[in-house]
Measured scan of single mutants.
Amino acid sequence: TTVHVNGVTYHFPNPEEAKKFVDRVVKEAGLTVEVKGNQWDVE
């Protein structure tokens, strides 16, 4: 699973890890998340 955060790419072994990361980032920074298949874009 690939997560893009403001142009930076993070790779995770599974969607659960990616979701935990995204949830944390979104809570801390108040960002928006767009999910496209296995790819997350966070802005």
Score class of each variant (00 low, 15 high):
T1Y: 14
T1V: 15
T1E: 03
T1H: 06
T2A: 05
T2D: 04
T2G: 01
T2Q: 05
T2C: 15
V3H: 00
V3K: 00
H4Q: 12
H4L: 14
H4G: 03
H4V: 14
V5I: 13
V5T: 02
V5H: 07
V5M: 10
V5C: 15
N6I: 02
N6L: 09
N6Q: 05
N6F: 13
N6D: 05
G7H: 02
G7I: 04
V8K: 13
V8G: 03
V8C: 15
V8L: 07
V8I: 11
T9A: 12
T9C: 15
T9V: 12
T9N: 04
T9W: 11
T9Y: 11
T9M: 11
T9G: 02
Y10R: 01
Y10D: 00
Y10F: 06
Y10S: 01
H11A: 03
H11E: 04
H11V: 07
H11D: 03
F12T: 00
F12V: 00
F12M: 01
P13S: 13
P13T: 12
P13M: 11
P13K: 12
P13F: 06
N14C: 09
N14V: 01
N14Q: 02
N14G: 05
P15W: 14
P15V: 12
P15H: 10
P15Y: 14
P15K: 09
E16R: 03
E17S: 06
E17H: 02
E17R: 01
A18K: 01
A18M: 03
A18C: 05
A18T: 01
K19L: 08
K19A: 08
K19N: 04
K19V: 04
K20N: 08
K20Y: 05
K20L: 09
K20G: 03
K20H: 06
F21Q: 00
F21H: 01
V22T: 03
V22S: 03
D23H: 04
D23R: 04
D23N: 05
R24A: 09
R24H: 07
R24E: 07
R24Y: 11
R24T: 09
V25I: 14
V25H: 05
V25Y: 12
V25T: 04
V26K: 09
V26C: 15
V26L: 14
V26G: 07
V26Y: 13
V26P: 03
V26T: 11
K27L: 11
K27W: 10
E28M: 10
E28G: 09
E28R: 06
E28F: 12
A29Y: 14
G30L: 07
G30M: 07
G30Y: 06
G30E: 05
G30R: 03
G30P: 04
G30Q: 07
L31W: 14
L31M: 12
T32N: 11
V33P: 05
V33S: 10
V33G: 09
E34C: 15
E34I: 15
V35M: 08
V35R: 03
V35Y: 13
K36I: 15
K36Q: 15
K36P: 13
G37R: 03
G37T: 06
G37A: 04
G37P: 13
G37I: 12
N38Y: 04
N38V: 04
N38T: 06
Q39I: 13
Q39Y: 13
Q39M: 10
W40R: 03
W40K: 06
W40T: 07
W40V: 08
W40M: 07
W40I: 10
W40S: 06
D41R: 07
D41W: 15
D41F: 15
D41Q: 13
D41G: 09
D41N: 10
V42E: 09
V42M: 07
V42Q: 10
V42N: 10
V42R: 07
E43F: 14
E43K: 13
